[in-house]
């Protein structure tokens, strides 16, 4: 039986039969794939902890009839701090669900794997405000998937953005200049600082974003713009987003 060795993060899991689980994994080597974790729901099973959400493992995957079967798990990071804080858990759930929705099965996506692993690690070590990590991840994932919003010029006419307040349309795919915004529905009016912040989130060194300071009002505008982009690109709701919104509402 053919067997491959993969580094993978658990994006989603669901029960199979009485004791098994189907896990959706994002692997560095083979992209997104579903696999069976045999006996993962049995007490004391070696794969019960390893097949939990967000867990990063080095796995051995054996060929199965329809789905691969995980025969060995070596946990590299269980992200225990994320699981111990409601705000971090809500954000990590959202990042994994967003990745699951935007990545198709089997397509090579080592960069997305590195991005997600990096984002989870930053949440785990508590690097800056957790929403900085979330928004940077959203922008970079959209860019990697080819859906990056246009932030440097008008998405319609290509006129360069010169630092004035502008309209942002998730449906049109970025900024709209004054002349082009007429008749476009669901636009968000954004201040220059918001556009500048999105530039930094998209291009700045991920590990240096922790020191980033959020100007008043900017966080809400960035959130509105990116929520819109994600909804347009996923073409369906991200369920974890509702929970994350509720948790954000309880944070001081």
């Amino acid at each position: 039986m053919a067997s491959v060795s993969l580094h993978a993060i658990v994006l989603r899991r669901r029960d199979l039969g009485e004791t098994d689980r189907i896990v959706t994994l994002l692997s560095q080597e083979s992209g997104k794939l579903d696999a069976v974790a045999k006996g993962a729901r049995k007490p004391g099973s070696k794969s019960s902890g390893a097949s939990e959400l967000f867990t990063l493992s080095h796995i051995q995957l054996a060929e199965g009839r329809r789905l691969g079967i995980v025969t060995q798990w070596l946990v590299l990071d269980a992200f225990t701090r994320i699981r111990a804080e409601l705000g971090l858990l809500a954000r990590a759930s959202y990042l994994c669900e967003l990745t699951d929705k935007l990545v198709d099965d089997g397509e090579p996506c080592g960069e997305v794997y590195d991005l997600l692993r990096g984002a989870l690690s930053l949440l785990e070590i508590g690097h800056g405000h957790p929403d900085t990590v979330v928004h940077a991840y959203e922008l970079r994932l959209l860019e990697e998937r080819g859906y990056a919003p246009a932030l440097g010029c008008c998405v319609r006419c290509g006129k360069e953005w010169k630092g004035s307040p502008a309209a942002f349309s998730p449906m049109a795919g970025g900024l709209l200049c004054r002349a082009c915004r007429g008749g476009v529905e669901a636009t968000v009016m954004v201040r220059p600082a918001t556009i500048q912040t999105m530039h930094t989130l998209k291009s700045g060194e991920l590990t240096e974003l922790g020191a980033m300071e959020w100007k008043p009002g900017v966080a809400a505008e960035v959130e509105a713009c990116l929520n819109g982009c994600v909804r347009v690109r996923c073409e369906r709701d991200i369920r974890s987003a509702r929970f994350l919104e509720m948790v954000r509402g309880t944070e001081v």
């Binding site: 007490p43 004391g44 099973s45 070696k46 794969s47 019960s48 902890g49 390893a50 939990e52 867990t55 798990w73 070596l74 946990v75 269980a78 225990t80």
Partner: peptide
């Protein structure tokens, strides 16, 4: 760890916990 468990056979996530 569950009672009667063998540390050598426990998964890493459980040992960390």
């Amino acid at each position: 760890l569950p009672l009667g468990a063998d540390l050598d056979y426990a998964d890493q996530a459980t040992i960390i916990s």
